[in-house]
């Protein structure tokens, strides 16, 4: 644990409060904000995942393994394209899948901590 953590925590809470006030003011564009939220998540995700991959994946097979990573991704996309789910269903499914991913990530953090 870094000594900065409590500081960062308060920082985060303050920013969250600001963001949520901002969001509350513009309630009618609710979905847009969810999207914005998600896109900032994407912006956050790419470097973070890149770093994690950079430290976990062995150097020798890096490109090969990155391509292995893309295989289930493309499969996922094909399933989505072929399946033709309704918007609500796909969002709910996404939420569930992301929750699962979150659990797995927590597991990964624990593995790394040992």
């Amino acid at each position: 644990m870094s000594p900065f953590l409590p500081l960062q925590g308060t920082h985060l809470v303050i920013t969250t409060v600001f963001v949520s006030i901002f969001m509350y003011l513009l309630t009618c564009l609710h979905a847009l904000f969810c999207f914005i939220e998600n896109y900032s998540g994407i912006g956050f995700y790419y470097p973070a995942m890149g770093t994690v991959k950079g430290s976990i994946v062995p150097e020798g097979q890096r490109a090969a393994i990155y391509n292995v990573f893309r295989f289930p991704l493309n499969l996922f996309m094909l399933t989505f394209l072929v399946g033709n789910y309704s918007t609500e269903t796909s969002f709910t499914a996404n939420a569930v899948l992301l929750m699962m991913a979150c659990m797995l990530q927590i597991h990964l953090v624990r593995l790394g901590g040992k």
Partner: peptide, 19 residues
């Protein structure tokens, strides 16, 4: 570790494309 990384990555990126 790598397997978890793979699953998490493909789930998130797949959902990004769905967005």
């Amino acid at each position: 570790e790598i397997l978890i990384c793979c699953i998490v990555g493909s789930v998130f990126e797949g959902i990004m494309y769905i967005f």
